[in-house]
Amino acid sequence: MSLLTVKGLGKSFGGVKAVDGIDFSVGPGELLALIGPNGAGKSTTFNMVNGQILADRGSIELAGQELIGMRPREIWRLGVGRTFQIAETFESLTVCENVQMALISADRQLYSFFKRASRHARDRALALLDLVGMLDQADRSSSELAYADVKRVELAIALANSPRLLLMDEPTAGMAPGERNALMALTKQLVTDQGIAVLFTEHSMDVVFAYADRIIVLARGRLIAEGTPAQIRDNPKVQEVYFGTGKTFEKLQSSKEGSA
């Protein structure tokens, strides 16, 4: 059963079709990777789902409810969380207070400088930090965090509205290989435990092939392939259009066989 269903989605900028009539879906408990070369339409697609860009045509439905025309805040309140390529926190606040700020929004409370964020739903914020392995740093200033830990805090913030769908834009950008695997393994566990649907873009192919349940590939705004990691790895069109010679896939296959 699909949670997010995209049909005939299109967006043009001037005479350029950035996204040209694509269809895809993602279900609860599934990680769907959206990949493609630069200029393929990944970011445009991602931002249309999130409401930051208005689609010219097509449909984006969340559990049967049309999202096109809604603002990002309205989509957030329907249970769609998001992380960004460059993660940021409020450095003047503690780790816990950053999550509490997200909970203030999720609970539709008004933030006031006369009412400190630290007074709102601290127990829930701590529970979210525990989920992402940051409980022991809850009262630490966010300005002191390593970047990999900022990414974990951002994930806790994205979970503040108990999302049904999580959009992750380049979740491992700027992270070392070990940090990338740790974050994606954590995400995979959350998806399994809570039944969250995840749509993510990613340039690190090792992450995509290790953690995605399915992959969709865009090129010049069109969907050229969809399938399991194994199917995408062996797809001649994807190798030609996305990777040229296919050497990246050969390297991934060798790494997989070597670790078996």
Rank of each mutant, 00 (worst) to 15 (best):
V49F: 09
G51T: 14
I53C: 01
I53K: 05
I60E: 12
E61A: 14
E61P: 07
L62V: 03
G64Q: 08
M70W: 05
M70Q: 09
R71G: 15
R71K: 15
P72M: 12
P72Q: 12
I75R: 04
R77G: 13
R77M: 12
L78H: 11
L78C: 06
G79L: 07
V80E: 07
G81F: 03
R82G: 05
R82E: 12
T83S: 12
F84A: 11
Q85T: 11
E88H: 11
T89I: 15
E91S: 13
E91L: 12
E91H: 12
L93R: 09
T94H: 04
E97I: 02
N98K: 00
V99A: 02
V99W: 01
V99R: 01
Q100L: 01
A102Q: 00
L103A: 01
R108Q: 10
Q109N: 09
L110W: 07
L110A: 12
S112G: 10
S112D: 10
S112A: 14
F113Q: 09
F113A: 09
F113P: 10
F114T: 11
F114E: 11
R116N: 05
S118T: 08
R119P: 04
H120E: 02
R122Q: 11
R122T: 04
L126S: 00
L126K: 01
A127L: 06
A127G: 10
L129Y: 03
L131F: 12
V132Y: 05
G133H: 07
M134W: 06
D136G: 15
Q137Y: 15
Q137W: 09
A138K: 04
D139F: 05
S141A: 15
